[in-house]
């Protein structure tokens, strides 16, 4: 009886462990692929560092399809997500995506002198994995963790954590503050204003 239970437990964990390894590999491969593609592009075309248009094009082509902006926005908004109408939600996702793309267009050029090393990954649960990477090339290596989900079929990043600073959490305070002071429409207006600047 006991040995049967043990065997079942072992089988379960064995199977689960196998699945975990398989899903980690898929996520790691995606992160590695993104890193290789983007650094190669930045090195090949030095204009990317100085031309925001070229940088955005690179991000839109190589990174956007691999990020789950719907989920990023949803988590950043927390409880306030439910307060927005579907049309507003759509608008917030699109403005927030635009803001992030713009921000990182200005920073992507620095990848020229850096290299991304994929260290390892850990499973946070079914179809949820964090891939840990190290960006080397400056005096001090920078740790960057990517959290991915495969819930919607195919791996997509939904949080980036730089030196323990989570991107999604960073926006949560701002979003919460704006919604409580000026409502969902106030948040949208603030995003639009920022994007047209």
């Amino acid at each position: 009886m006991t040995s049967l239970r043990l065997a079942l437990v072992a089988a379960f964990f064995g199977l689960f462990g196998g699945v975990a390894v398989a899903q980690s590999t898929g996520a790691e491969d995606l992160v590695r692929k993104m890193a290789v593609e983007v650094t190669a592009a930045v090195r090949k075309d030095p204009d990317i560092a100085t031309s925001p248009a070229k940088a955005s094009a690179l991000i839109e082509q190589r990174l956007l399809p691999r990020f789950d902006f719907q989920r990023i926005t949803q988590v950043a908004m927390g409880r306030n997500w439910a307060k927005a109408t579907p049309a507003e939600q759509h608008q917030i996702v699109s403005e927030f995506t635009h803001l992030l793309v713009r921000t990182y267009s200005n920073a992507i050029g620095t990848l020229k002198e850096l290299e991304v090393q994929v260290k390892d990954s850990r499973s946070n649960g079914p179809s949820d994995v964090t891939v840990r990477t190290l960006m080397v090339g400056r005096a001090k290596p920078v740790s960057i963790d990517y959290t991915l989900t495969s819930a919607g079929g195919g791996w997509k990043v939904y949080d980036v954590t730089v030196e323990n600073i989570s991107l999604v959490s960073a926006y949560r305070d701002e979003f919460t503050g704006l919604v409580s002071s000026s409502g969902v429409s106030g948040l949208i207006a603030a995003l639009q204003k920022k994007n047209t600047k």
């Binding site: 803001l99 921000t103 030196e163 323990n164 600073i165 960073a170 603030a190 920022k194």
Partner: peptide, 28 residues
Amino acid sequence: ENANLIDSSSLDKYAFTRNLYAQRREGL
């Protein structure tokens, strides 16, 4: 560079900075 990045990415720079600081210190 970092200051410019925060400038261009935040809606309420005060709240953004406060959050980044808290997360960074907690991580350390």
